[in-house]
Design a protein around this nucleic acid. Structure first.
Lengths: 340, 340
DNA sequence: GGCTAGCACTCCGGCGTACTGAGTGCCAAC
DNA sequence: GTTGGCACTCAGTACGCCGGAGTGCTAGCC
């Protein structure tokens, strides 16, 4: 049904269309790719491919363009992640090397990804749920207010103000700090939240209310869903390259970029960094984004990825290139975070 | 030369044009605004206004649109910051109330501003240069690596990894931490950097190199220019409302939004929160943004603003409304930060 | 049976022409 | 200084007319 040549034709159509952004005809096809057959033959193959729903024509007497189904086949069967050049790899490494803290890593990654793919890049901050506690700090702001600072293994810093029911002497604060760290450091955040619940009981009766309050704020900071919605975006200027069709492709995407929740849904569950997920057109969970594709993967430890990063662009995108870039950046980011 | 009626005409033209986004003609003008004269008279006035360079016609036999100079006169003389409604004020207050930390305050502000003005909003993070040190923390990562955490008065948290030349015992770390805080807390960051330089001399000879390293990292964190370039952006989706003329108005702005340095230059020096700065078209320091205006102001203490926030949009924007929103948000943010 | 050559057909897109209507500038009158 | 009248200008739109790219189909060829 779909012999090798037909698949070759499909591959050629996808590649040409991605390159020129214009419907591709049978004649141009045999010229650009050295298919050893005549245009007429290609036309027959095209008819078959169209019959199967892999390509379509915008109007009679125009060339063909791939459908979502066509891209899907292309991505699954007709191409592989093309390895980056040595120069590109080095560029990634040096670009990410100088990062000074987590924020810096994330921002550099998003910039890098946008630049490599010439598309819109999204990087989710490491989720708290999968991080462990590195350190907890209590800073006295005033006699009845403390600042609770939580530093996670991935380098994220969360801070919350604690309003104390009554002032706590400095040595008690120091004691609570020590106990907090003993119970929480090295633990998963969710686990840590459970462990610290016993702290109020260990405190002197007079301080119990205050310690309870501290523990409550700690638990709240850890559980706060909003903090898991943190993402960085870059390369929005690349939207301009999407060219025509402002209302259908650019506008909805620009709106989606404002809604971080939507973005996280686009990126999807964090997969293992070695697996790159591709969602094409209608496979994306928002109908306004039906002409948009997402290439994403997880980063962090192989078995336990911390979060997701990826790019979004028009369905007509360079999948092999994007997949390679996403894959490579995820690998380097994982490495850097594991060192830190 | 420019009598009151001519100014009225100019004001009417600006208001109509901002509203309809279309060149406004003499007839429509007398109808919409109840000018008590005939279209012919208005035409004469228009001719005079055009002579003076306040308005122009896109082509012969079209209505008039304001020039940058026209908007300038409008902003300076023909309008005042229109007070927000009570409902709007309350909305701002409640919207910003729930903020949990500085990041949250900034992100909420930028969203709020974008929503109020229906434009692109920019909020600069409090500059380090004008903040004071609230707390310095040293966290042991491994025997030869420390994490230095700096918390400023405005609630910003900066962290840096310190690679020690040789391991430091815990009690020495605690001692250095205490000394760091004693010297630095409450000081301007620049002043603090100077003060801590004497710390290595106070240390035991054996630890001197390590302490020197810590102090160096501290100084670097404080002086790092990049950290002053931090901004949050919101409402990019509102760009779609700029309508036509994608290449001239949207594209360059989208590119500018990628470059935080450019944005900071757009926002300009932080002014007192009670002064709202307006830059119109060519007054903006980038020629690609010649059809863009910026409305900005400082926030933080009146005499010593911490940073800048504002909106950017097409020269054809609702200046009174934008100015009011920027002003109000700056006031509330200042208030919230002073409480924290 | 698959491939190719030829050919008639379709239809987008660019181009020139004509028309419409909003808006102007100017002049003469009030 | 203001107004009514009028001729003029010109963007925008609609219409018709090609040219060209691309197709589908059929008949012939290997």
């Amino acid at each position: 049904m779909l012999d090798d040549r037909k698949l070759d034709v499909l591959r050629a159509i996808v590649e040409d269309y991605v390159h020129t952004q214009e419907p591709v005809g049978s004649k141009a096809l045999v010229e650009r790719h050295h298919l050893e057959v005549s245009p007429a033959t290609v036309r027959n193959d095209m008819a078959a491919l169209e019959e199967e729903g892999f390509i379509t024509q915008p109007h009679t007497s125009a060339g063909r363009i791939p459908t979502d189904k066509g891209y899907r086949l292309f991505v699954d069967k007709l191409t592989s992640i093309k390895p980056l050049s040595g120069a590109e790899k080095r560029a990634i490494a040096t670009f990410l090397q100088g990062a000074v803290d987590l924020d810096d890593v994330v921002h550099r990654s998003v910039r890098l990804l946008a630049q490599l793919t010439q598309q819109v890049a999204i990087v989710q901050y490491p989720t708290l749920a999968r991080s462990t506690v590195r350190h907890v700090e209590l800073v006295t702001l005033s006699s009845s207010r403390l600042l609770l600072v939580l530093i996670t293994s991935a380098g994220r810093v969360e801070q919350r103000v604690v309003e104390l029911p009554k002032p706590l002497p400095d040595d008690v604060v120091a004691d609570v700090r020590a106990r907090l760290n003993t119970s929480a450091v090295g633990q998963r955040l969710s686990e840590a939240a459970v462990r610290v619940t016993s702290l109020p009981d260990q405190a002197h009766a007079a301080d119990k209310a205050a310690v309870t309050q501290i523990v409550a704020v700690f638990a709240e900071a850890v559980a706060d869903d909003r903090t898991d919605e943190k993402v960085a975006i870059g390369g929005t200027a690349n939207l301009t390259r999407f060219g025509d069709d402002f209302d259908r492709s650019i506008k909805p995407l620009l709106e989606a970029l404002e809604e971080h929740v939507v973005l996280l849904k686009l990126l999807g569950e964090a997969t293992s960094p070695s697996l790159v997920t591709v969602r094409i057109g209608h496979e994306v969970p928002y109908k306004q984004l039906a002409s948009t594709s997402v290439v994403a993967t997880g980063y962090g430890p192989e078995e336990q990825p911390l979060a997701t990063l990826g790019v979004v662009g028009p369905t007509r995108m360079d999948y092999p290139g994007s997949m390679a870039a996403v894959h490579a950046v995820a690998r380097y980011v994982s490495q850097i975070l594991s060192e830190a």
